[in-house]
Amino acid sequence: MEKISLTASATDAGLRLDSFLADKAGSLSRSRAKSLIKEGAVMINGVPTDDPRKAVVEGSTYTLALPEPIPAVPQPEDIPLEILFEDEHLIIINKASGMAVHPAPGSWDGTLVNALLFHCEGQLPGIGGVERPGIVHRLDKLTTGVMVAAKTEAAHVGLSALFATHDIERSYLAVTRGAPRPLSGTIDEPIARATGDRKKMAVVRNPDGTHGREAITHYKALETFGLRDKGTGLPAAALVKCTLETGRTHQIRVHMSHVGASLIGDPVYGRSKGVTAWGSGEDFDTARDAARRFERQALHAAVLGFVHPITGEDLHFEAPLPQDMTDLIAALRLLPKDDHD
């Protein structure tokens, strides 16, 4: 990965950050600079930023990490897809765990884009002048559930507008270590790149009044499992429904961790791979072992609803819980819920 460090002069002061980088970093366009900033590839005096409009300050050092180039054209691959709906404009799938959405370092092939290029061969008239599916939202590689992609330019523009105005119904199911307190509510906490780790997000409210991008998650614990400690009455785990009002990177994972109920199996935001539950015996061992062995964040995109951007039809899709989460919940249900069980 190539890194470029630039120190702003007096004549640079006041410029938008994306304009400054485009002007100083050789062949970089402003739109590409803007994308890199939003991806967390830029640091100001060692602190990450994701604001391309930020004003440049004289004497500050701006470091740009240029990622390795992605192959120009992803190749079609015959990868099975669970298709929930398809017409000439859209395709809705139930994404499996382990499938990345876009080709990227470490996942150049086997992605949803590769699969859609094969499945939709001859059906993609072009989005932005390129024969490709229009991805307007994404799920993490290890997250399962409902996703939509556009097959035409008009559908892509329409879907993008719906997501931009939050006119999309999106509900997720998560299994958490402990339970959020209270058991239902709204988390309204801004999210930005974590300081010192551009791959990680965090709730960011700085003492100087600056903060991350608005992020709002409505949640409700549908079921709780066991007790964390004898006599406390606090659950050891919970099945939580999360409804997104905004769609920030890792939003549910960050928000649940922020309120002390990180997702079981989360390799980035989870404080523990398992659950802490009071008790002993075979049922306790089964439940705790199931949580410890869970190999991904326990998160599933269960519901996606929106108005078809071309036909105006009301669309609503639900994807059942995958088997690994079903098995995890069944094991957690073995935990007694009070001291007298």
Rank of each mutant, 00 (worst) to 15 (best):
V113N: 00
T217D: 10
Q123H: 12
P125V: 05
G128N: 03
A221H: 01
G129H: 00
G196P: 13
R248T: 07
V146K: 03
G247E: 07
A179Y: 02
E223S: 10
V204Q: 08
T224E: 09
A236V: 08
G145T: 04
G226T: 09
C242D: 02
P103L: 00
T111M: 00
V136T: 11
A236R: 02
C120S: 06
L239H: 12
G134W: 02
K220I: 02
G110H: 00
L142P: 05
E131D: 11
L222I: 04
R170E: 07
R198F: 08
L117P: 02
L162A: 15
P125Y: 10
E169P: 01
D208M: 04
T144N: 11
R205M: 13
A104Q: 07
G134P: 06
L222K: 10
Q123N: 12
T232K: 10
E214I: 14
F118V: 01
S107C: 11
G145K: 05
T243Q: 14
A238V: 03
T186V: 15
G178I: 02
K151Q: 13
G126E: 05
V113D: 00
V130K: 13
A238E: 04
D229C: 09
A154T: 14
G212A: 04
P105S: 07
G129T: 01
T249N: 10
A238D: 03
E214Q: 14
E121A: 15
D188F: 09
T224V: 14
V113Y: 01
G231C: 11
V130P: 06
K230Y: 15
R177G: 07
C242P: 04
Q123A: 14
A164S: 15
T249F: 01
R205L: 13
T186S: 12
T111Y: 00
Y172V: 03
G226K: 10
G247I: 07
T144G: 08
V148A: 03
M147I: 08
K200Q: 15
T249Q: 03
A161L: 14
R170V: 04
S107M: 04
R181W: 09
V157Q: 14
T176R: 01
R198L: 06
G110F: 03
G196W: 10
H156F: 15
H156S: 13
L159R: 11
F163P: 05
A202I: 08
L183P: 03
K220W: 00
P190W: 11
L112N: 08
H166N: 14
P105E: 11
A155S: 13
S160T: 15
E245C: 05
